[in-house]
């Protein structure tokens, strides 16, 4: 199955990835090839099969309600590209299209 250029743009938009024109063309071709190869999965009859999300039979794991030393604000901010007054600084959210 061949992905259209519009589909590639739509996927990139959902994934928040800026692609160059060259990348768009390359991914259109490569992702189409990969999805073609994956078509063989449709041969399998999985009608009565339960999906596996995790191999472990774990549900709502709880730990003891014991307090621990919290992470320090300075440590958490140390890797940030921009900070101000002990907060992460981001571009304006409101007023953007």
């Amino acid at each position: 199955m061949k992905l259209s250029a519009d589909q590639v743009d739509r996927i990139a938009e959902l994934a928040r990835l800026a692609l160059t024109a060259e990348e768009r063309a390359l991914y259109q071709e490569q992702l189409s090839d990969i999805l073609d190869y994956f078509e063989r999965l449709q041969e399998l009859d999985t009608e009565a099969i339960e999906p596996t999300a995790s191999v472990l039979p774990l549900h709502s794991v709880m730990r003891a309600d014991v307090s621990r030393a919290p992470s320090q604000r300075e440590d958490m901010l140390a890797n940030a590209p921009a900070t101000e007054d002990g907060c992460f600084l981001v571009p304006a959210v409101l007023g953007q299209g």
């Binding site: 590639v8 996927i11 990139a12 994934a15 990835l17 692609l19 990348e23 571009p91 959210v93």
Partner: peptide, 27 residues
């Protein structure tokens, strides 16, 4: 803006295989 900063950051920061897999998984 914020959304375009996300896109530019991820477009430049990730290499070709990571972008390919993110696209595949998103699809």
């Amino acid at each position: 803006g914020l959304i375009d900063t996300y896109k530019a950051t991820r477009g430049e920061g990730f290499g070709p295989e990571v972008k390919r897999r993110i696209m595949l998984g998103t699809y």
